[in-house]
Amino acid sequence: MTHDAAPPVSVTRRRFLASTAAIAVLASAGGRAHAASLSGILPWQPYSATPPTPVVPGGWTFFTPAEARAVEAIVDRLIPADDVSVGGKDAGCAVFIDRQLSGSYGSAQNLYMQPPFANGTPSQGFQSPLSPTGRYRQGLAGLDAYCKANFAGKSFDGLSPAEQDDLLKKMEANGIKFESGDAKSLFELLLQNTMEGFFADPIYGGNKDMVSWRMIGFPGARYDYRDHIDKHNQPYPLPPVSIMGNSTWVRR
C-alpha cells in the first residue's frame, strides 16, 4: 500500500478548515503558471486580467528590410489606395503581419507540430512542418528570386503595379513555381494575414484610424446596441470605437 502523500497545494484538507477557508494559487512570482487548488471561495485576484499589448509602429521585428519592402508592396496591391480607402501599406497591414509573425502566431506555438509530416487530402487540412515565419521566409525568398530572374534583376517592389497584379494573380491561380516555398500557399497566407490586419482592431497595428470599419460601417467594440435593436432598416448613427478608444478622444 502506498501511503497518502501531501496534496499538490496546501488546502485539500479544507474539510477541517473553517468554511471561509480560501486558497488560490494562481501564479508564482516568476510568472510561471501553477496548478491551483480552489475551494471555499470564488477566487479573484487584482491585476489578473490579460489585456493585449498595443503595437507601436516603426521598425521591423521579423522582416528584413528587403522582405518588408516586398510585403508593403504586396499589401498595397491586395488593398490598393483608391477613392474608397487608403491602401494596405498606409493602413498598417505590413506592420500588423510583422508583429504577428514575432508572436505566438508566427511560431505556431499553439499548433500540433509533432512528426511525422505527410501530405494528406485537402479535407485533412494543413500539414506543413513550417510555422508561418518559416513559410514567409521561404516564400518571400522564392518570390524575390522569381522576380529577379524574370524582371531583369528587379525585386517585387520595383515592378509596375500592373506587373505586380499580374504576378499576384498567377500566384493565386497556382500558375507559377518558386525555387523556394510554394507560390500559391504564400499568396493565400498573405491574403489571409493582410485582411486580418485591415479588419482587426487597430491595437494590432493595422486598420489605422479604423479605416476599414468606417468604410463598411462596422461600429467596432461598442458592446451595447439595446437602443438600436428595434430600429429596423435604419443606419446605425455612431462612429466606430476600438478597444483602445477613439482617436479623437486623445490629443494628437
Binding site: 499538490p8 488546502v11 485539500t12 479544507r14 474539510r15 478548515l17 468554511s19 477557508a21 503558471a33 501553477h34 496548478a35 491551483a36 487548488s37 480552489l38 475551494s39 471555499g40
Partner: peptide, 8 residues
C-alpha cells in the same frame, strides 16, 4: 466547503 476545483 465540500467542493474543490483543481485547475491546470
Amino acid at each position: 466547503s465540500n467542493f474543490e476545483a483543481r485547475t491546470l
